[in-house]
Write a protein that binds this DNA or RNA. Structure first.
Length: 110
DNA sequence: TGCTTGACATGGG
DNA sequence: CCCCATGCCAAGC
């Protein structure tokens, strides 16, 4: 339910935010998955945008959102990449040899 | 109002 | 394994 008066967010975006916020610790979700849950499986890119725009505002667990390959989508140059990896490890998620997460074990079923 | 952008996804080289 | 091209859609400017 989105209030059209004071909520600048669209319905899709709001769903995305709620979906991300609902990801439990120790689990991860892919952009496409979140987009699909929000209603548009093609809007995976917007999920990333929502993450950037709202993570700081809504305190979203952005580190639990990864790419479909089970990898962190941030460039290694970025300082947040290592941060995200550490956070996930602290939540019990184990990484493979190439910083790869086994989605069959850790992907959030929704 | 309209074009550009983007923490993606998928497939091929 | 890594890099490139295409589709797709909303947020930003």
């Amino acid at each position: 339910m989105a209030c059209a008066c004071s909520c600048p967010l669209q319905d899709f975006t709001l769903k995305v935010i709620q979906t991300i916020a609902a990801i439990p610790a120790g689990k991860v979700a892919t952009y496409g998955q979140i987009a699909a849950m929000a209603g548009n499986h093609r809007a995976a890119r917007q999920v990333s945008r929502v993450l950037h725009t709202c993570s700081h505002k809504y305190q979203l667990p952005w580190h639990r959102v990864i790419g479909a390959a089970g990898k962190i989508t941030l460039p290694k140059d970025h300082s947040s990449h290592l941060k995200q990896k550490k956070k996930l490890q602290q939540e019990g998620i184990e990484f493979g040899l190439s910083d790869t997460i086994d989605l069959s074990l850790y992907q959030w079923p929704g």
